[in-house]
Nucleic acid binder design. Sequence first.
DNA 1: CCATTTTATATAAGGCATGTATATAGTTGT
DNA 2: ACAACTATATACATGCCTTATATAAAATGG
Lengths: 148, 148
Amino acid sequence: MVSRSPEGIDQLAARLISQGSRFARTASRRAGTQRSLIALRALANLQQEGDLRVGELALREAITQPAMTAAVNRLEADGLVARGTDPADARAAVVSLTEAGAEELHRFRMRAAAKVRPALEGLGKDDLAVLTRAADLLQELADRLNQE
Amino acid sequence: MVSRSPEGIDQLAARLISQGSRFARTASRRAGTQRSLIALRALANLQQEGDLRVGELALREAITQPAMTAAVNRLEADGLVARGTDPADARAAVVSLTEAGAEELHRFRMRAAAKVRPALEGLGKDDLAVLTRAADLLQELADRLNQE
DNA sequence: CCATTTTATATAAGGCATGTATATAGTTGT
DNA sequence: ACAACTATATACATGCCTTATATAAAATGG
């Protein structure tokens, strides 16, 4: 039985933040990447959504626009993304994923998965279903928090 | 039906890292804290486990010992934790949560929960059960990754 | 159609975060 | 006692992130 009481909901919120960040840091660290989580998230956004403006990326990841500008600068310097201009709006900087960026993202995912796989394989199919659904729910929750 | 194929497992691992970090950052940012996620995680560890050494904290959070020393320095400077010595081992620095630290942790949790609660309240009880179980599983997975 | 306001991005400055390498001090084993 | 090991701290470099501000372009409203 899951508590729907305010206390239960609040405790769940705190635990999701806490354990979500801990798991992500632990797993990505074990994968031995040089790249920050925010940089990898930016690449993943571009792969999933196609070209995005700097401001859109910042909004999606809930960091400030200057922070995303800096992240894009580093990714651009390493050739993982490219900046273009929007023909309809000369103010905008349209960021696109390069071939090298897609490859780096793929390599990270493979390395991370290789580290996490043994732990996941120890779970039953119910728990795998829970985690699969939870990944979707976390995305929806973050989307909703960003809409406000 | 949840895929138990290697591809399904690997994709799940990548998604959990990606969405876990995004949700945690988004929610904590919306809570408007000054404190970093690692600082809050350190406080949470101390509350849950009692006094811990600097090295144990670093291991649990999968950051280097110097990084945790720096985090503890900042928390100590703000009076949220205290350093003590282990009578059985004079090398060790035993970190303990202060009253002010527990209060700050509680305030963060309340602020964060207040932001996330509306989104969680929109979910059905099945999804709440999924997230509750997922929080436990993420903790176990991170623990297991840290054991190696 | 120009002046004002708004929007998109970039730059600047400061502090936190985090890694590698190393120093210091204490413990353990022989 | 000496050597090896362990726990933490320090030094240094780089990256991350925020607030405040600058620059340039677009939208608005007389």
